Amino acid sequence: MTGVKKFRISTPYLLLIPGMGFLFIFFILPLFNLAQTSTQTRVGGGDTGEYEQTWRFANYFDAFVENREQFGRSFLYALIATVLALAIAYPLAYTIAFKGGRFKNVMLVLVIAPFFTSFLLRTIAWKQILGEEGFVVPTLRSLQIISESTTLTSSAFAVVMGMTYNFLPFMTLPLYASIDRIDPRTLEASGDLYANGFTTFRRVTLPLSMPGVVAGTLLTFIPAAGDYVNAAILGSPQTKMLGNVIESRYFKIVDYPTASALSFTLMVSILILVTVYVRKAGTEELV
């Protein structure tokens, strides 16, 4: 019986082995390799692609100073896209949860339907939508909102719109899961206590849905800050994000130390921001 009891106790740890092994091989080891590469120095001149370990931590400072504009732009675009996604997704998730009825499952399928299409194709579609051949620009011009010479592609507006659309499901699904768990009787009780609709939302619905808000904003902001596809397709050299710089350093300039330093700095910056945000948001009920 003692052997059986020990086996039962060790079973959960045995089940962790495949997952921990996967994380070690495909996350921990690449992370160590990234850190090691970030302190190397190029050997010789030109584009030899040969580096030696010199523990040059100044690579981090040089990379940040040289690309500080892209750093700020990445976090700014990600923040704007997250706020816009929250403004769009919250009413959508609320409607699906409380007003969807028998069409709730259909509406959820429509939310995740973009996942069945390539991320790249969705971004290219936005380039066509916002281009001269699309319906947005001619409509805005006919309403005299923009001038005849104004274009929407190759702009910060296009990049943010593409990011908002592509990451919208990541915001909607956690919000729906959180709102759907709210007992409608709590809303009815608020009305019985003479609270109007806005007060009920502010004092009851929003606090109870905060776990979904926190989860959705994290799932949107984190990939948006490191995105480079939207900026590459919908933007211009003036709207480059840090992901575009890292991609260029790795595959075009072949400057592995700078690219690694930028990647590590971006990861640490996001980790710090997320930690502060989670602590300030108070997510002890985020389960």
Results as ranks from 00 to 15, higher is better:
residue 1 M to S: 13
residue 1 M to E: 10
residue 2 T to E: 14
residue 3 G to P: 01
residue 5 K to F: 12
residue 9 I to L: 15
residue 11 T to G: 01
residue 11 T to L: 14
residue 12 P to D: 07
residue 13 Y to Q: 10
residue 15 L to T: 02
residue 18 P to K: 10
residue 18 P to V: 05
residue 18 P to Y: 07
residue 21 G to M: 10
residue 21 G to E: 08
residue 22 F to W: 15
residue 24 F to I: 13
residue 28 I to S: 02
residue 29 L to N: 11
residue 32 F to A: 14
residue 33 N to P: 05
residue 34 L to Q: 12
residue 34 L to Y: 14
residue 36 Q to A: 13
residue 36 Q to I: 09
residue 46 G to A: 00
residue 46 G to K: 02
residue 46 G to P: 04
residue 48 T to H: 08
residue 55 W to Q: 11
residue 56 R to W: 07
residue 56 R to P: 01
residue 58 A to K: 09
residue 61 F to C: 01
residue 62 D to I: 07
residue 68 R to P: 03
residue 73 R to C: 10
residue 74 S to C: 09
residue 74 S to V: 04
residue 76 L to D: 06
residue 77 Y to N: 01
residue 79 L to R: 05
residue 80 I to C: 00
residue 80 I to S: 00
residue 84 L to G: 10
residue 87 A to S: 09
residue 89 A to V: 01
residue 92 L to S: 11
residue 95 T to Y: 14
residue 95 T to L: 08
residue 98 F to E: 11
residue 99 K to T: 02
residue 101 G to W: 13
residue 101 G to K: 10
residue 101 G to L: 10
residue 103 F to Q: 07
residue 103 F to Y: 12
residue 104 K to P: 01
residue 105 N to T: 15
residue 105 N to I: 11
residue 107 M to G: 00
residue 108 L to W: 07
residue 114 P to M: 06
residue 115 F to Y: 15
residue 116 F to R: 00
residue 120 L to N: 10
residue 123 T to V: 14
residue 123 T to A: 03
residue 126 W to N: 03
residue 128 Q to P: 01
residue 129 I to W: 05
residue 131 G to Y: 05
residue 137 V to T: 13
residue 138 P to Y: 09
residue 141 R to E: 06
residue 143 L to R: 08
residue 144 Q to D: 15
residue 150 T to F: 10
residue 162 G to I: 03
residue 163 M to G: 09
residue 164 T to Y: 05
residue 165 Y to M: 12
residue 167 F to D: 04
residue 168 L to G: 00
residue 174 P to V: 13
residue 178 S to I: 05
residue 180 D to E: 15
residue 181 R to F: 06
residue 182 I to R: 02
residue 183 D to A: 01
residue 183 D to K: 04
residue 185 R to L: 14
residue 187 L to P: 06
residue 193 L to A: 01
residue 193 L to T: 00
residue 194 Y to F: 13
residue 195 A to T: 00
residue 195 A to L: 10
residue 196 N to H: 11
residue 196 N to S: 10
residue 197 G to S: 14
residue 199 T to N: 09
residue 202 R to H: 03
residue 206 L to Q: 05
residue 207 P to K: 04
residue 207 P to G: 09
residue 208 L to V: 02
residue 216 G to F: 03
residue 223 P to M: 08
residue 224 A to E: 09
residue 226 G to T: 10
residue 231 A to G: 01
residue 232 A to T: 14
residue 235 G to D: 11
residue 237 P to T: 09
residue 238 Q to F: 04
residue 242 L to D: 03
residue 242 L to I: 09
residue 243 G to T: 06
residue 249 R to Q: 15
residue 252 K to C: 00
residue 254 V to S: 12
residue 254 V to P: 05
residue 254 V to M: 12
residue 255 D to H: 08
residue 259 A to H: 04
residue 262 L to C: 08
residue 262 L to F: 07
residue 263 S to K: 01
residue 264 F to S: 11
residue 265 T to W: 09
residue 268 V to Y: 08
residue 268 V to K: 12
residue 269 S to E: 09
residue 271 L to C: 11
residue 274 V to G: 00
residue 277 Y to N: 11
residue 278 V to N: 13
residue 283 T to L: 12
residue 285 E to W: 12
